[in-house]
Amino acid sequence: MNNLPREPGIPIRIRRKLAVALGIGSLSSEISEQMLKIDADAASVNFDIAPNMLVKDGFAFLGNGMDAATAFSCKILNLDILKAPIAKNLVLPNEQRARIRQANAINQPRLRAIHAVFSAPAIRTPACGSISLPSIRTEDMNISARTGNRILISKILDMPHVRSSMDINLLPDSVYASFLREAEFIKKLPSARCELQAVFRNVPIELISQLQFLAEKNVIVYKISESFRTRTRIHDMAAVRDTGSQEIHLVPHRTRFRWAFLN
């Protein structure tokens, strides 16, 4: 007790009682400096009131021992002990001026509560029949195609073949002239007054049942007759215009042909 700090303005006996009332027992000057520094200039203190100290957890080492003989009334209303415990609102009865300056009592580690493990979720099972399970439909997801039978092969066989002319500007002069000679031989058209309108490659003239030349499109449209042949000749054919009459004649080339096999 002799080591109690000699705070100016506080008589020694009061400081002793105050130390006992706070439960710090053999309060040394070192402890008081580090843990609870009291600076109070009290002119008069009512010693008749029993000390009523509320100490929060972590500060209990200061002691709960309240000496009843100490008629010092001291009430600590609130102590914040996290990290740097500070005693607040120390109310001294009949005090005129009281302060608690320092409360670095101890470096208490901060306590943290961490729930590292998630609590297992509750599993609920609905009562049977309470909620009807939806029906699962899968048939809508299957996109499927059906083969048809509305178009018969006979209909396809009867469809006209359309053949476009090749570019007659790309014809060699010799070929061009040979077509004119064919027109002169077959149609008796003087080559001097004829010109080629179109040339069609590989026309199966032996199998054609209907043949039409569409001058505006420069195409021939034809149908193929049913045949039991196993092969046929396919000829190059020209559309020759008679510049005198403007009539167009279809002239197959007698020597420009190939054989084709019919499955």
């Binding site: 083969t147 396809i156 193929i224 019919l262």
Partner: peptide
């Protein structure tokens, strides 16, 4: 066949 005459034809209905 090699002159364009149909030998077989299959098709699907529209999907």
């Amino acid at each position: 066949n090699e002159i364009g005459v149909p030998l077989e034809f299959k098709y699907t209905e529209p999907v």
